[in-house]
């Protein structure tokens, strides 16, 4: 039977949900599922219970002072050491920012290939040194068939490519690995945090009011702001808007901005270029407001209102206020 090693990503003292997606994917392969948990920032017994529920048989806890806070070089070395110790056939993480970073770091150390953001894992991955994988290009606008040739196959599964499903498993066994991490790697450890005020973020808002180039100016976003604040949502925008300096980059929805997944995305005056679409496509429902009924965003939307956003959005704000009164 093959051995699959999954990297656990942690945040605020817990394993992140994306890791449970990676475990769900790992379980579909015919193999024994191991997890590497770096450092002591997460309680190992709690983690073993959670990870076991999602199919892990053994949690290997990497022990070193240099692993207790995140650092890409130290975590990358830890993963490389775990790979040497466990000799897995497949090494897997969710394709998050840090997941891909640590896999790439370990792959660089071991001079192995690394295939990022696969959309599914074929069963041959567990036992064949040569395997064809489907992976994301252009943020999901295109797919690539990629041939991976390696004795240890390092891959990430694209975040949100599948939903995490509990296997109903019991707590995983825990084993510690004493890790000798190079002191030098303290140089890339997290040294602090700057957090914004708590509240709904673009990534977590239930409704997002997006505006594109057609909004025309920074000031003209006011009616969209009003709708968002009336409904506990957030304002988003296209890359054209941030490139014009009308909104800060943190408001950008797109391949190079934030991927949103609200219940409803209201896309106003947005044509729906690839760059924007890949950031918006995970929305449960899309309402497009546009003067052009042929616009890409309109064709892909669930609902459409034909009209000028400068007239429609203020009318929507008035209607919301009327009903809330």
């Amino acid at each position: 039977m093959a051995d699959i090693l999954v990297l656990a990503e942690t945040e605020d003292g817990a394993v992140v949900p994306a890791t449970l997606e990676a475990l769900t994917a790992a379980r579909q392969l015919d193999g024994d599922v191991h997890v590497l948990l770096c450092g002591d920032s997460v309680d190992a017994d709690d983690a073993a219970e959670r990870l076991g529920e999602y199919g892990a048989s053994t949690v290997h806890v990497g022990e070193s002072d240099l692993l207790n806070v995140f650092g890409p070089e130290a975590w990358g070395q830890a993963l490389a050491l775990a790979i040497e110790e466990i000799s897995p056939d497949v090494v897997l993480a969710s394709g998050t920012s840090k997941g891909n970073e640590v896999l790439a770091m370990a792959a660089a150390r071991l001079d192995l290939p690394f295939v990022a953001n696969c959309t599914e894992l074929p069963s041959e991955l567990a036992d064949d040194d040569e395997v064809e994988l489907t992976r994301v290009q252009w943020g999901g606008s295109l797919l690539e068939q990629s041939q991976l040739s390696a004795e240890t196959r390092i891959v990430s599964i694209a975040h949100h490519a599948l939903e995490a499903e509990s296997a109903g498993g019991s707590a995983a066994a825990t084993e510690t690995i004493d890790m000798e991490i190079d002191d030098l790697y303290a140089r890339t450890q997290v040294v602090g945090r700057e957090m914004a005020e708590a509240g709904v973020t673009l990534a977590t808002a239930p409704i997002v009011f997006g505006g594109g180039r057609a909004v025309g100016s920074a000031e003209a976003f006011a009616p969209l702001e009003e709708c968002a604040s009336l409904m506990g949502g957030r304002v988003g925008c296209s890359r054209a808007v941030t490139n014009n300096g009308w909104r800060p980059h943190r408001d950008q929805v797109g391949q190079t901005g934030t991927r949103i997944a609200p219940e409803l995305y209201v896309a106003s005056g947005i044509s729906g270029a690839i760059q924007h679409w890949v950031g918006a496509m995970a929305s449960k429902q899309i309402l497009a407001i546009n003067t052009d009924p042929e616009a890409n965003m309109v064709v892909k939307a669930d609902y459409f209102v034909e009209g000028d956003l400068h007239q429609v959005i203020p009318a929507v704000a008035e209607e919301i206020k009327k009903r809330k009164a």
């Binding site: 192995l112 290939p113 690394f114 295939v115 064809e132 290009q137 999901g140 606008s141 295109l142 797919l143 690539e144 068939q145 990629s146 041939q147 991976l148 040739s149 390696a150 496509m281 899309i286 309402l287 497009a288 309109v298 064709v299 892909k300 939307a301 669930d302 609902y303 459409f304 209102v305 034909e306 009209g307 000028d308 007239q311 429609v312 203020p314 009318a315 929507v316 008035e318 209607e319």
Partner: peptide
């Protein structure tokens, strides 16, 4: 150890877009 075999289009998002109306009267 990684070689591109081919590129392909993802499954098309086909939507039966429902039109809610025209202009501010659609509010």
């Amino acid at each position: 150890g990684q070689t591109r075999v081919t590129l392909k289009q993802p499954a098309e998002t086909v939507s039966n877009t429902v039109k809610l109306g025209n202009g501010p009267e659609a509010a």
